[in-house]
Simulated scan of single mutants.
Amino acid sequence: LVHNDSNVKIVVHLEKKERTHITIKDNGKGIEKKEVDKIFDRYFRGTNTGTLHKGSGLGMAIAKDIIQKHDGEIVINSTVGKGTSINIKL
């Protein structure tokens, strides 16, 4: 929410299969490929995060650690100008 315009639509989908699948999609500004590859690195802050939101760059690294501690996985796909999809399996 903090990295996009106020008109961005965010959809959260939960599905129970052999594992629980959580998908979070938006139609926001997206993330460049070179930054998606670093998104889980501690202290990494992307270049299109804006100046209004100050962060430490720890959020996604911590999220991944928690998910992995629960034998889960997280994958991010993003296209600049089209949006981002985060897929979590627990």
Rank of each mutant, 00 (worst) to 15 (best):
K54F: 05
T20Q: 09
I62Y: 12
G50R: 06
S56Q: 10
H13L: 15
E35A: 04
N48M: 04
V12M: 10
D71Q: 14
F40E: 03
E35T: 00
T84R: 06
D65V: 04
T49S: 13
K82Y: 12
N77I: 03
S6I: 07
D65T: 12
N7G: 08
D37P: 02
V2W: 04
K38N: 11
L58A: 02
E15C: 10
D37Q: 13
V2N: 03
V36C: 07
T79F: 10
T51L: 04
K89R: 12
I86R: 05
L14K: 15
H13F: 15
M60A: 04
F44Y: 14
G55E: 11
G50I: 07
V12E: 08
N7T: 14
R45S: 10
R19L: 10
H70W: 04
Q68W: 01
E15I: 07
V2H: 06
A63L: 15
I39R: 00
I86E: 08
R45C: 14
R19G: 06
S6T: 11
D65F: 01
D71K: 15
Q68L: 08
E15W: 01
K25H: 04
D26E: 01
E18H: 14
D41H: 08
I86T: 14
G50P: 09
S78I: 13
D37H: 10
I88P: 03
H13W: 12
I31W: 08
N4V: 08
V80Y: 02
I74Y: 00
R19E: 14
V75F: 13
N48I: 00
H53V: 08
N77Y: 13
S56K: 10
D26P: 03
R19Q: 15
F40A: 00
K64N: 00
G59C: 04
L90W: 11
G50M: 07
I39D: 01
D5T: 12
H21N: 12
I86H: 14
I74T: 04
F44P: 10
D41V: 09
G30Q: 05
G46P: 07
N7H: 13
T20Y: 01
A61I: 00
K89G: 06
G81L: 05
N4L: 03
A61Q: 02
D65M: 13
L14I: 14
H70V: 08
V2Q: 07
V75R: 14
S6D: 14
K82R: 13
M60K: 00
G59F: 06
A63N: 01
V80L: 08
T79E: 15
F44D: 08
G81P: 09
